[in-house]
């Protein structure tokens, strides 16, 4: 039985070592083919996914801008000037404070966005507007430059050199904004409607509940779909464990045959194990025997106390420092 247990416990270890060896081989192959830089790029690509992004400033995007604002959106001072909209593409709040905005590639730190302003926190999938009016005294969202002539805009991370997003834009017309077709991801184009601080594409999204109410008023489609998915999930589990069970039994039997010499008492144990399923009475008898064994173990102690000589010369137990009371001293 002990041999059988060893065989069972070593199976996962063997699987693990085989998997580790395969992983190491794959890694060395990729490294030889792609090189270190290629491997890093591949790792970055594998780690990136839309759903896996954290709440980072790298999730921010330049989203819309208006260069010539003569009869459009006004700031809090009632003045019209060029504006830049930045969009938070993530599903977490991102603080833009500490980042930089600039219209000059050689001076990325032209306008440091102040830290410590609660308004620089951009809620998930929300926007913020900066005024390019060269009036930084008007507040956090008023830049210290204008964007009349450079046709370039760059948003830089707080480290001052990592470019988060940049844009080279064409000549602009008055009161026409230039923005992405879809918030954060779409192509840049001249917008039909100016949409500062709101979505570039105003799609009237029908609530999921309303959609189901309209298209599936009786719930039949939902029932068929959902029951199919539930069955699919559990049938997959069923199929896997049907064969996992068979494989596990086969592996155990195989290991038992390899390790245990023919005719030995353990061989007999293995042959019993192979007669699956065992009747419930066998398990009950084993459980009773184990229980009785445990009870006897607790009652019959050996009552033998072993004292070994400690090799170490020093021990807290023989130190006089801990056993003597400190002599009172006059201060």
């Amino acid at each position: 039985m002990k041999t059988l247990n060893n065989a069972m416990t070593s199976t996962p270890q063997r699987l693990f070592s085989v998997a580790s060896a395969a992983a190491m081989w794959s890694f060395s192959l990729l490294r030889s083919r792609l090189g270190r830089a290629g491997l890093a790029a591949l790792a970055a690509a594998l780690l990136w996914s839309p759903g896996a992004q954290g709440q980072r400033t790298t999730d921010l995007r330049l989203n819309e801008l208006m260069v010539i604002n003569s009869a459009n959106y006004e700031d809090d001072f009632g003045e019209r000037s060029a504006w830049i909209e930045i969009f938070n593409t993530s599903y977490g709040t991102v603080n833009i404070g500490g980042c930089y905005l600039s219209d000059d590639l050689n001076n990325l730190k032209k306008y440091p966005i102040p830290k410590g302003d609660v308004l620089t926190s951009i809620k998930p999938r929300q926007h913020v507007i900066f005024w390019a009016d060269n009036k930084p005294t008007h507040g956090t969202f008023h830049l210290n430059f204008t964007i009349d002539d450079t046709r370039f805009l760059v948003l830089t991370s707080s480290d001052g050199h990592t470019i988060i997003d940049s844009l080279t834009y064409p000549e602009q017309a008055a009161d026409v904004s230039y923005g992405r077709s879809e918030d954060g991801v779409g192509e840049w184009h001249f917008c039909e409607r100016t949409t500062p601080s709101t979505n570039n594409t105003l799609v009237q999204l029908e609530a999921a509940s309303d959609r189901f109410k309209n298209y599936d008023p009786l719930g039949i489609a939902m029932t068929i779909t959902a029951m199919s998915v539930v069955f699919l999930a559990l049938i997959s589990l069923f199929l896997i464990f049907k064969y996992v069970g068979k494989t596990a039994l086969w592996v155990i039997a195989l290991r038992g045959r390899r390790i245990i010499p023919k005719g030995s008492p353990a061989q007999v144990t293995v042959s019993v194990e192979k007669q699956q399923p065992s009747p419930g009475a066998v398990f009950a008898a084993i459980a009773c025997a184990l229980r009785r064994y445990e009870l006897e173990m607790s009652e019959l102690e050996s009552n033998i106390l072993t004292i070994n000589k400690v090799a170490k010369a020093y021990s807290p137990w023989n130190s006089k420092i801990y056993t003597l009371r400190e002599i009172p001293r006059k201060k």
Partner: peptide, 23 residues
């Protein structure tokens, strides 16, 4: 469940209650 995996399917069938009540 692992020893008799086909029983998993019963767990799927009983979810009919959820969708019956939904309808």
């Amino acid at each position: 469940l692992i020893s008799n995996p086909k029983l998993m399917l019963i767990g799927a069938a009983a979810q009919l209650g959820i969708f019956g009540a939904y309808m």
